[in-house]
Amino acid sequence: MDAIIRTATRVLFPVILLFGIYISVNGHITPGGGFPAGVILGTAFLLLAIGADETSIDARISKKNVMYLKGSFAIFLLLIVIEGYIIRNNILKTQDFFEIWSGGFTFFLNIIGGFMVLLGILIIVYSFIMTMYPPREDDWK
């Protein structure tokens, strides 16, 4: 990979991440919310997967990352379940509009939603990268 692309990836990755978190957290005030924020966060990680060192891809598929991937399935589904319970009950409301704490549960649900879309994109990108490697012993058969 070019030196320009490598450096640009290293610089841009935290910026895009921060931007995605901003859109997700301020979802109930400004346009945005859970789903666009998840797409932006996914773009950040996709940039990391494509633009980084070719030699460091091997280092990235270590045992810790495989465990993180399996954990991400769990967290994903757990968040879906939590969202199911929250949505089924009445929300809590506060009084000031256009403030951070005004939306009630929509505040937390935006963050959860963004995280869920990010995990979905990560799982798909990881599946495509890992087709280059044979199945590992501790992986799901």
Partner: peptide
């Protein structure tokens, strides 16, 4: 009846994490 859908999602969660 409205508890059925989250309960089936819970069971899917248990199977996908611990099932292997």
């Amino acid at each position: 009846i409205s508890y059925i859908v989250p309960m089936l999602l819970c069971s899917a969660f248990i199977i996908v994490t611990l099932g292997h």
